[in-house]
Design a protein around this nucleic acid. Sequence first.
DNA 1: ATACCGATTAACT
DNA 2: GTTAATCGGTATA
Length: 194
Amino acid sequence: MSTLPRSFYLGHDVVRIARDLLGKVVVTRMQDEVTAAAITETEAYAGELDRASHAHGGRRTARTEVMYARGGTAYVYLCYGIHHLFNVVTNEHGTPHAVLIRAAMPLEGMVVMNTRLGREAGHWLKGPGVVSKALGIRTAHTGADLLKGPITIEDRGLRVARGAIIAGPRIGVDFAGPDALLPYRFHIRPSDLR
DNA sequence: ATACCGATTAACT
DNA sequence: GTTAATCGGTATA
C-alpha cells in the first residue's frame, strides 16, 4: 500500500495518466469511516484546448480555478444539482488538466458504502455520481491534496490484465464537437484486475 | 436580477 | 426510450 507520489500527477500527458489510474485505489478516511475502491473507468480532460473541458479556452472561474492547481489536487463539482463528480487534477500548476473517475470496484468499507448509497453497493460502482456517493466525496472536498487526505489514491499492486483496456469516446460531451470523438475514455472490467 | 442548462441517475413506460 | 430531480455556474441585461 503506497500513496501515489506527486510525480505521478505532475506528468504532462493527461491521457496516459487516465489510463495509468486504472487499477489504482481511491481511499477515503472520514470520521473513522474508511472506504476504498479500485478504479475501473476514467476520462481525460485535456485543458484549454479541449472543448469538453470546463477549462476550455482558458476559462477561469471560482469553480474551475482548482483545475489550475498542481497535479494531485481534487476537483469535485456538482452536476445537475445532485451529483458530486470527482476529478483528479494533473500536470503542473497553471495547466488545467484533469481525470474524471467514472467507475470503481469496492474493496473496503462495503457496509459504509451501502449506507451512503441506500442500497447494496454490489461489486461494481458504475457512474461518476455513484462512485463519489459511495466513497463519501462531496464538493466540499474540492481543492483537497490527494497526498494528504481525507482522499488519497494508492497503488496496492493490482495489475490490469494485458489487453483488457478499452478506449473510446467520452460520455455526455456531445456538445464538444469534434473533441467529443477523441478516445479519452478508458475502462476495464473488475475481473481484469489481478 | 433573471434565465438557461449540465462531464447524471434511477425510476419509470 | 423517456423523464423528473435539483442547484450552482455562466451568460445576458
